[in-house]
Design a binder for these strands. Structure first.
Length: 647
DNA sequence: CAGGAGGGGCTTTTT
DNA sequence: GCCCCTCCTG
């Protein structure tokens, strides 16, 4: 074994070496929790308490999972451990279980090759339901209804608990449609796995016996469904180790229950509680600022982070005239830092809302500062990428009517909405899926001969691609798909810039598929599609590339940078104006700032703008954030006096 | 009946 | 600034 515990402190070592029973690790920011988890996994394996297969570790992002895997591989020389997010874990359990026992399909109402719908697909289905139920889309926006549906699933509520009759009806129809499409949304992945565990004893026992040791990171951000999932899995052997920090709970709007971490000891009374309070990341100054902010929260476990690091530089505050000046200030500080030998990827710029990134992008282009934007324009959400993936999804799951509608006229086959509507009506009347209906389209009296021919040609294409998919590997298949569908050609006809970019993006997708193929030689197409559907913004981010990092405060969780800029520290952004009325939400905004501050190792910059343009309310003249006043003035340099200038 | 062009809506945070 | 819907043209 090629590692020692010399670089762990006493508490960390204790957390790593407890061999049995539940463990609650309350890990403050920068206290080395990732190290504790990886060392613990290595310890369990090297002491032969379990084989690698007997461990499951759940992380918050795929990125974190990949990093943890590679660390363990370098420690043990092997990395065949189940380290995944909740969603990816459940997606795999569902698929495995449906494969192992087809009869479970009647319980889950899905088959093995189900499709995962993202938020956009979800809204498409909700729109279908709202239209079908004759509900006014202005009054009930799909986004709003979707959020309510998600909440029901995250909380594992019974649909009859939905207080609004109308939403309940949409909920029911929405779920029925997903069943028909053989599709699940993000929250179904967790909810259906819980259902599977609760209603099929043998499946639950299979996984309980498989995973003798369970580790869950970022436990403060688990929701009810994830909590029940974890509890069920851990019930038998009770070797559950959860790691988290109530001060870093920032996902309550996604159903996360801070209670899960605060009440852990109630569920598992024999829990060993370990507190990691020594911070190894930040300077004393930064830590002081962070603590003095979060100390104002009422709903938290009292704790004190400390460190042996240097005092470090003062925190700088800059009050800009407007968002552009703010961005230019950040750019100048970065150029300055570069001259002093810092690398571009030592810098990170955080903001509360995605649209703030635009100003930084614009400005960094002008200053010729290479940057990497995390989130916002997600690669896998680009239309051309979704189109190609939709072909693959329909090939795997012909019942995926959302995917099918997406590609039926891409590239243009002169099949328009009216034809699709007629087809749809025919399918509904005869109980066909759209795909089935296509093969029967010659029987649709409402269609003329020309249209029928077009539809037959399309279904022949899809049938052919489906047949080929069984013989070809992933890379070969996607090449055939983009060529044979005519999609690639359609993007070459007109020499517009937009088409050129689309072709480039498809090329990039194909390269990434080739790479995936290399890493997972035997992966089924369905597995690839699931992986892609569950990829987050941060997952494709390259920490090591020589670029300044731009991201939201939420995306910053779990990361660290030498120099951090937290921008727009204004009343209305941090805290966000929508969170101001509710104390609980208000405190979450404070935690968000706390998370941002504690990402910084050496130097922290806070910036505000006197004036900010907003699409919704025109020009705003915000005050500085009330949280800023909670930082002691003696750790802040710069125009501290400017504080009181503002509104 | 398909499909492009142009106008009105809206943006918290995300697996 | 971007997406969605509608209207108009061919």
């Amino acid at each position: 074994m090629s590692f020692t515990f010399d670089d762990l402190n006493e508490e960390q070592r204790r957390a790593v070496t407890i061999e049995k029973g539940p463990i609650l690790i309350l890990a403050g920011a920068g206290s080395g929790k990732t190290r504790v988890i990886t060392y613990r996994i290595a310890y369990l394996i090297s002491k032969r308490l379990t084989s690698p297969r007997g461990i499951i570790a759940i992380t918050f992002t795929n990125k974190a999972a990949d990093e943890m895997k590679s660390r363990i591989t370098s420690m043990l020389g092997r990395g065949d451990i189940w380290i995944r997010t909740f969603h990816s874990t459940c997606a795999k359990i569902l698929r495995e279980s449906l494969r192992r026992n087809r009869a479970l399909g009647s319980l889950i109402k899905r088959s093995e090759n189900y499709t995962i719908y993202d938020e956009h697909d979800q809204q498409t289905v909700i729109k279908e339901c709202l239209k079908d139920l004759n509900i006014d889309l202005q009054e009930w926006s799909p986004g709003y209804v979707g959020a309510m549906i998600n909440r029901v699933k995250e909380d594992l509520q019974k649909p009859d608990n939905i207080d609004h009759d109308l939403v309940r009806r949409v909920y029911e129809q929405y779920n029925k449609r997903l069943e028909q499409y053989n599709a699940v949304d993000f929250d179904d992945l967790i909810m259906l796995t819980v259902k599977l565990f609760q209603q099929d004893r043998s499946t639950l026992e299979h996984y309980q016996n498989l995973f003798r040791y369970i580790l869950v990171d970022e436990y403060q951000d688990t929701n009810k469904a994830q909590y029940v999932f974890t509890r069920l899995l851990a019930e038998k052997y009770r070797n559950l180790c959860v790691v988290g920090d109530d001060d870093q709970s920032i996902y309550s709007w996604r159903g996360a229950e801070i209670r899960n971490i605060l009440d852990f000891e109630k569920d598992f009374p024999e829990t060993a509680v370990i507190k990691l309070e020594q911070n190894y990341r930040s300077t004393k100054t930064i830590l002081k600022a962070a603590s003095s902010v979060v100390d104002n929260n009422e709903y938290r476990k009292p704790k004190t982070l400390w460190c042996e690091n240097q005092d470090g530089e003062e925190i700088s505050f800059y009050l800009a005239d407007d968002a552009y000046t703010e961005a230019a200030y950040v750019a100048r500080r970065i150029i300055e830092g570069r001259l002093q030998g810092q690398s571009l990827n030592d810098f990170a710029v955080f903001y509360r809302v995605n649209y703030q990134s635009r100003m930084f992008e614009e400005c960094f282009v002008r200053f010729q500062i290479p940057y990497e934007l995390v989130g916002a324009l997600k690669f896998y959400e680009r239309a051309e990428i979704k189109n190609v993936l939709a072909y693959l999804k329909v090939i795997v799951n012909p019942n995926d009517s959302v995917g099918l509608k997406r590609i039926i006229n891409v590239p243009s086959r002169k099949i328009g909405n009216i034809t699709v509507e007629k087809l749809n009506k025919y399918c509904e009347e005869n109980g066909y899926s759209l795909y089935q209906g296509l093969s029967q389209c010659r029987h649709i009296t409402a269609l003329d001969q020309k249209t029928v021919e077009k539809l037959m040609k399309f279904i022949a294409l899809m049938n052919d691609l489906r047949k080929k998919s069984k013989e070809l590997d992933l890379f070969e298949l996607v090449m055939i798909v983009v060529r044979q569908s005519g999609y690639l050609d359609s993007l070459s006809d007109r020499e517009t810039d937009a088409d050129y970019i689309r072709r480039k993006n498809i090329e990039e997708l194909i390269i990434s598929i080739k790479e995936y193929n290399k890493q997972h030689p035997n992966a089924a197409l369905a597995n690839y599609l699931a992986d892609v559907s569950l990829r987050g913004d941060i997952d494709d981010w390259d920490r090591d590339s020589a670029k300044v990092n731009l991201m939201t405060l939420h995306n910053a969780k779990g990361l660290e940078f030498d120099t951090v800029f937290i921008t727009g520290v204004e009343d209305g952004l941090v805290p966000h104006y929508k969170s101001r009325s509710d104390q609980y939400q208000y405190e979450e905004e404070r935690r968000l700032l706390y998370v941002g501050i504690t990402r910084a190792c050496k130097k922290l910059h806070l910036t505000c703008a006197r004036q900010r343009e907003s699409f919704r309310s025109g020009t705003m003249y915000p005050s500085i954030s009330p949280f800023l006043r909670e930082i002691p003035k003696n750790v802040i340099s710069g125009a501290v006096i400017d504080y009181d200038d503002m509104g």
